[in-house]
Design a protein around this nucleic acid. Structure first.
Lengths: 353, 353
DNA sequence: TGAATAATGCTCGAATTGAGTATATCGAGC
DNA sequence: GCTCGATATACTCAATTCGAGCATTATTCA
């Protein structure tokens, strides 16, 4: 067994020049900055919402996610840093927060490459009950917007959006059939295969969780505005393109896409939906909230059977009148399920030894 | 709608002093370094393996994960940086790589707080087929080790490990019943509840995916060696403590724990297991590989029914003789499932509109 | 009072799952 | 070549879950 060089720091103020292996990296002035961004999500009136901070960039107003740089001197943890920025920009006090992903590719920040420090971007998902019902401004300029302003192709509440059939699919197919220009170092998946998997073309099913895959594909194909902003080449055969959803600052729409996908997935095996419900709710309100996030309609009777038999909720004893019909029983979340069930929904279950 | 300050950079060589909100952060010399670490996993002879790089730290040999700092000038993406470090330290050419989590808390690196740059650590999971069968050294000092050297309490292949009942559980209960010293800013979950959820005490079930929860709990309770190394207080009533698994450098065991949990979960809804199989395999070999990762035994006949009916594999036509009995048919992975099925195993399925 | 509107309750066949039994095919030893 | 032990593979069956529809109950509003 070979022993490696001892681990030590030669210059504490620069990028480490010693590491665990045997070769030594050349030093460089490489400076890294860490950006923290929160996709804060809520549901109100059956509409899924995202918290946005309108921001001025190059003279235009663009929506941004609440965000700021991580400052290790002031923030004890990444999480704390994020909460501080959010509190600062929105006056919201976050409850449930979950880290999503760390993005580090160059060129996604609409900045010149070599003069600014490289930004690595950590995205978070936060769930919250929408505080009041004043229908937009949350505080000092932060506003709630509908998810589907930014991702119209994800809105299947009225069935498959015509935007997909009419605008997106033909262009994606055209793009997929063009020659692949980027070097495909790893993952030998053709453009067409990517499109088929993400958008469920022939034989494929639409997977509501693949929000990021779809956004990235649209980015790579030059169909979303951010791609053009970042200077990606775009097919000349496409004339003036529609915007395909409202753009966002930097890579914020990418983080947002990650958030939607993660939330849609997580809903199915962890009781996170209750982070967005008030203390008391009817089963139909619960269903509507789930549907706002997942999309298509669920069978009402089966939904209540599922939720009740899974022990996720318990009746409070009260009822809500004025539902337009028979009053609905009120329920609350049963915190104990967290301990009882490992995760409502496991795949391969262990048998007996 | 309030407009925020325009976004710009005042000093490109320091932490940003402008951000999206309205207040301006004081500048600081806060320097951040990004560490990339890979938990490279494989299975051989029904034993789950992790790739380790023995490293000298403070005169002792400690196992580390293949890792190194992210250098934006040399690495185009985080992913590329990780692959470079792994290639450098192990001679492995990674296929499947998945980002796990970014850890940023202070004090997990066994380094003085204020003199070194703060390290933010991005962990990755990589799956690979074990190249040869030479039973350890992979190259230049890198070695394969069993998972359970590091996480003996996760090894349920022979039933519940006595280490849990005899050593861990009593100490955890003792710890949980002591007063909570840390500030519990968010998440009002008591120590006891955490222990019950993670380790499946009374009424709780053992969830094989909660590997990180369990490790973190042992860390917080001061039961794993890294906690003592990082200077966490430990109960004085516990005399000499066993090590509770082999320690690792820095926060590498934490990353490793994240990797195991993620892999155990992902196996159930994505065909990642095939990343660790050879091109041709028998169904029983496949089952043994799954069991090595998940733990308990699966019902043989039902396992094959599940795998076959899900369309995950197709017979090659060949058979493997010398199984000790009837020859076993050989199968290969059916790549098409990736397109056909969204994700084998969804929870709440959409009904009809 | 009676329609309209929801909430809630119940049923039933199809599909999935857990677990067991039965049969096939090899190698080794006689 | 036949039998035994071992393993792979095939088939069966009951219990449970799931998808979908019909039926009943409790309100509001005209």
């Amino acid at each position: 067994m070979t022993m490696n060089v001892p681990l030590r720091r030669e210059d504490v103020n620069d990028m480490s020049s010693v590491h665990i292996g045997q070769t030594v990296m050349p030093k460089g002035p490489a400076r890294v900055e860490i950006g923290l961004s929160a996709a804060i999500v809520s549901v109100s009136r059956d509409e899924p919402l995202i918290m946005c901070v309108p921001t001025d960039a190059d003279g235009e107003t663009v929506d941004a996610l609440p965000s700021g740089p991580f400052s290790p001197l002031e923030h004890r943890t990444l999480d704390a840093g994020l909460r501080a920025w959010v509190a600062d920009q929105t006056d919201l006090d976050l409850g449930y927060v979950e880290q999503l992903y760390t993005f580090g590719d160059r060129g996604r920040h609409a900045q010149p490459f070599d003069q600014t420090p490289h930004t690595v971007s950590i995205g978070y998902l936060a769930l919250t009950r929408k505080p009041v019902d004043a229908d937009d401004s949350a505080s000092e300029g932060a506003v709630w917007r509908s998810w589907y302003d930014f991702f119209p192709w994800e809105d299947w509440r009225q069935g498959k959006p015509s935007l997909l059939t009419d605008e997106i699919e033909p262009r994606l197919i055209e793009w997929a059939s063009r020659v692949d220009t980027e070097p495909k170092a790893f993952r030998t998946v053709s453009r067409l295969e990517r499109v088929r998997m993400a958008f469920g073309f022939d034989g494929g099913a639409w997977d509501e969780e693949r929000v990021l895959d779809r956004y990235e594909l649209l980015y790579d194909a030059g169909l979303v505005h951010e791609a053009r902003r970042d200077g990606r080449e775009v097919s000349l055969t496409w004339g003036a393109l529609p915007k395909f959803g409202t753009p966002m600052l930097f890579d914020h729409r990418r983080i947002f896409a990650t958030a939607i996908g993660r939330l849609r997935g997580k809903l199915k095996y962890r009781p996170v939906i209750f982070e967005m419900m008030r203390d008391e709710f009817t089963l139909f309100e619960l269903q509507k909230t789930v549907e706002a996030i997942l999309g298509p309609h669920l069978h009402k009777q089966n939904f209540r059977r599922l939720v009740e038999s899974a022990g996720l909720v318990e009746p409070t004893g009260d009822v809500r009148a004025k539902t337009g019909g028979r009053p609905a029983k009120l329920y609350r979340f049963r915190r104990d399920v967290l301990i009882e069930r490992p995760a409502p929904g496991v795949r391969v279950k262990p048998g007996r030894a």
